[in-house]
């Protein structure tokens, strides 16, 4: 089966006053049509930068220094401005953590929704407005036609995220990238928004890349999960594989450090010593070696390559083929 999105050996560098640093160090993954792929990682792991690079949304300080991004076989990194405009919004859309920053506070909701519709679907104003009301109603906004005339400030956080989702799916994109879409929301509202994304993308057959620091959110939403650490994918597999049989010591430690909601609790939580590496700090060998309980000499000398574990699983660890201790 050919992939809808194919990211190969992506490298992203940032120019900072202190020099250049590499935020994404050779990330590869692919997303099939209709598939849901989750990217989990802590701050500085490069998960958001990866998403921005895929949609060509990187700021001026960042450059893609290597690798390829292909959408439907086409080279996204070679798109000119016109191709990019036709592609983004229509075929590939994004939802951000804070809808307040992606919605313009001074423009009525209606115009922000119809803008995309008119641009990509060529609807006239009346048709676009009708469609916009329909869209808002479909994402669960009561009294949608009237609320089109309101400004983002009058919407609650959950409602704003619904609007952002409505805009993102308005042209039935084939790929939706959602970067921490529920992090700013309360847990009961998060559940609603995840349900909404679930239903909308299933109906349209849209593939989703869901980025989150929360393994719970990602593993319950996605088919496959990538775990990122210090700019690399350290482990990937199906959501069940990652949660039930993690092979990378980082994934194991991450899962262990989340207190469960039922069963016995330890007196102390198993924690990972140290802090995630500062972006841009050069290191030889495995980036996790300093914090890893399994670290041996080989880990400090050589950065492990992703190791094929069968069933389409990958883990970048010298000891990945050993069972969990």
């Amino acid at each position: 089966m050919s992939a809808l999105l194919d990211v190969e050996d992506l490298v992203v560098r940032f120019a900072t006053p202190g020099g250049e640093h590499t935020a994404v160090r050779g990330v590869s993954f692919s997303v099939r049509a209709g598939e849901r792929v989750g990217i989990v990682g802590e701050s500085g792991s490069g998960k958001s930068v990866t998403a921005q690079a895929v949609l060509r949304l990187l700021g001026p300080a960042a450059t893609v220094a290597g690798g390829a991004v292909r959408f439907d076989g086409r080279d996204v990194l070679a798109f000119d401005r016109g191709e990019l405009r036709r592609w983004r919004g229509a075929q590939a859309a994004m939802v951000f953590q804070d809808p307040l920053s992606s919605l313009n506070p001074l423009v009525r909701i209606g115009r922000q929704v119809t803008e995309t519709l008119r641009e990509h679907l060529g609807l006239d104003r009346r048709a676009a407005t009708a469609k916009a009301a329909e869209l808002l109603a479909s994402v669960g906004i009561p009294d949608a036609a009237a609320r089109l005339r309101e400004y983002p400030m009058t919407f609650s956080g959950g409602m704003r995220q619904r609007v952002a989702i409505a805009i993102a799916i308005s042209c039935a994109p084939r790929l939706l990238i959602a970067d921490e879409p529920t992090t700013a929301l309360d847990v009961t509202v998060q559940a609603q928004v995840l349900d909404l994304m679930d239903g909308m993308t299933a109906d349209l057959g849209t593939a989703v890349v869901l980025i989150s620091h929360d393994l719970g959110v990602v593993s319950t939403f996605c088919d496959r999960v990538l775990v990122m650490y210090a700019g690399r994918v350290v482990e990937s597999g199906t959501a069940d594989q990652i949660v039930e049989d993690p092979r990378h010591p980082y994934t194991r430690a991450l899962l262990a450090s989340i207190p469960s909601l039922e069963g016995e609790l330890p007196r102390r939580l198993p924690s990972i010593p140290g802090t995630p590496p500062q972006p841009g700090r050069a290191h030889t060998g495995c980036a996790f070696a300093d914090r890893c309980p399994l670290a041996a000499d080989v880990c400090r000398a050589e950065d492990p390559e992703p190791l094929e574990l069968g069933d389409g699983r990958l883990a970048a660890c010298h000891f990945a083929d050993r069972s969990a201790g």
Binding site: S271, P273, T275, P277, R281, D290, R291
Partner: peptide, 8 residues
Amino acid sequence: APIEVPGL
């Protein structure tokens, strides 16, 4: 508690 790696 474990000392965090002096990263800076």
